[in-house]
Design a protein around this nucleic acid. Structure first.
Length: 430
RNA sequence: GGGGAGAUACCAGAGCGGUCAAAUGGGGCAGACUGUAAAUCUGUUGGCGAUGCCUUCGGAGGUUCGAAUCCUCCUCUCCCCA
């Protein structure tokens, strides 16, 4: 059996691991789980870390379980600074769960008939019928308040100078999550829970419950929170989260996100988010160091993830689009594109539709950019950016004086507007 | 319940009768350098038919030729004492 802990270790995916975990995983096929909140019907790339832990787990021969936190998601984990959660109704919950499962199925094998087939469960299914009295008698009885208060997440909130305090509901959160672990332990012989480093306290409440209530031994493993070298939040752009759902984040944007990762982050990310071997990654790093401008690491990262989350075909069109937009493309190359290619290339790019008549009479650039399209929020800003040389039409710089005419149209219908280096918009004339 | 401090642009934070569309920093946007990286440097950051005009300094009134600045009331925030 492949050494799972060792695998995560060289990938930099271990923050904390309970003693004995490694031995257990070498000795037998272990069932392990990661929890995910079903707050939306799509995952975003922040979720990918947990999924990749399970992916590696399964490829090491163990059995991954995805726990959808239908119940816990309603309460809200005090470790985060999250506000009160909204209670999801059951149809939404089920819908989200199904959508998420489809996405995860690209990483985990739910179909194999082998003993390590992946499994998805929802804690709503066993928490729903649990009565309050039943819970405090059967579960709460075994854990002391003293123990619960010792958790960092609780201490911070109670003693904090910020003095926010915490509600009883949030205080109870660790018991509910801990009970999940106990339930999975009894039901599936699940002996390992994994998660982000902020989950350590909650996970150990679970192992404690298993020890006291079931007299069993269970383990914990956490990975460091993913950071960016510049201190920003991982997985967020100005435009928001990077989602796995192509409707929310187009494959092109998804691909671009990974291509834009800084060198400092690329080495870490490629270990975490791809399945490439240690020697292969070290080889890539060596090549990258010799010719950093080719961005071999970023490309490998973007390739693997785009294929994994979307498809080979999506990757190809993302690459094609990127080459046209960021390569040596000129107005000439743009004009040579046939309509079909052009549309597929710009599929993931924001689009605006305008009337053909508006191009007839001396339309000036600022009216075009901030009037009939909403590429800029105001004419002032459009003018300013043009003055700074930051606006291009069909890859040629324009100025405030430029008039927009039909002769600019590509294929008689399109204008490619570029704002700054990276923002593209396709204007379609009807 | 008593006393005090405050609310300014995306955020933090100056300004305390005209020279204020409002210092400074952060953030954002753009440019240069590069590799669609990082760092750095530069410009810019209310709107518009633009040597001018309009809307902004918690809200509503008032004083004044003139208010972010002074007065009154209201709303909210923070601190101290009980």
């Amino acid at each position: 059996m492949k050494n799972f802990v060792e695998e995560l270790r060289w990938r930099g995916m271990i923050h904390d691991v309970m003693p004995g975990t490694e031995d257990l995983l070498l000795k037998e096929v272990v069932t392990a789980y990661v929890g995910i909140d079903p707050t939306a019907d799509s995952l975003h790339i922040g979720h990918l870390v947990g999924i990749m832990m399970l992916r590696h787990l399964q490829s090491c021969g163990h059995r991954p379980v995805v726990l959808v936190g239908g119940a816990t998601g309603m309460i809200g984990d005090p470790s985060g600074k999250s506000q009160e959660r909204n209670l999801l109704d059951e149809p939404t919950l089920r819908h989200n769960q199904e959508s998420i499962k489809k996405q995860i199925a690209k990483f985990l094998d739910f179909e194999t008939k082998a003993e390590n087939q992946a499994l998805m469960v929802n804690n709503y299914d066993w928490m729903r019928e649990f009565s309050f009295l039943g819970f405090i008698r059967d579960v709460g009885k075994h854990i002391t308040v003293n123990y619960m208060m010792a958790k960092d997440s609780v201490k911070k909130r109670i003693s904090g100078d910020t003095g926010e305090g915490m509600s009883f509901t949030e205080f109870t959160y660790q018991l509910v999550q801990g009970y999940d672990y106990l339930h999975l332990y009894k039901e599936y012989n699940c002996k390992l829970q994994m998660g982000g480093s902020d989950q350590w306290g909650n996970i150990t409440t679970g192992t404690e419950m298993i020890r006291r209530i079931a007299g069993g031994e269970a383990y914990a493993l956490t990975c460091p929170l993913i950071t960016k070298a510049d201190g920003g939040k991982f997985g967020k752009t100005e435009k928001g989260n990077i989602w796995l759902d192509p409707e929310r984040t187009s494959p092109y944007q998804f691909y671009q996100f990974w291509i834009n990762v800084s060198d400092a982050d690329a080495s870490r990310y490629i270990r975490i988010f791809t399945l490439r071997s240690k020697s292969e990654i070290e080889q890539l790093e060596a090549e990258h160091a010799l010719a950093p401008h080719t961005r071999i690491l970023q490309k490998a990262l973007a390739n693997d993830l785009t294929i994994n989350v979307h498809s080979e075909a999506d990757l190809q069109s993302a690459i094609e689009a990127s080459e046209i937009l960021f390569g040596k493309g000129t107005t000439e190359t743009l004009r040579k594109l046939d309509e079909k290619t052009l549309l597929s290339v710009f599929d993931g790019v924001p689009q605006f539709e305008i009337e053909k008549e508006s191009l007839n009479n001396d339309l000036n650039a600022s009216d075009f950019l901030a009037g009939i399209t909403a590429i800029f929020p105001s004419k002032g800003e459009a003018r300013r950016t043009m003055k700074e040389g930051g606006v291009m039409f069909n890859r040629e710089k324009i100025t405030e004086e430029t008039l927009i005419t039909q002769s600019m149209l590509l294929n008689d219908r399109y204008i490619l507007v570029q704002r700054g280096k990276k923002n593209y918009y396709l204007v379609i004339v009807k």
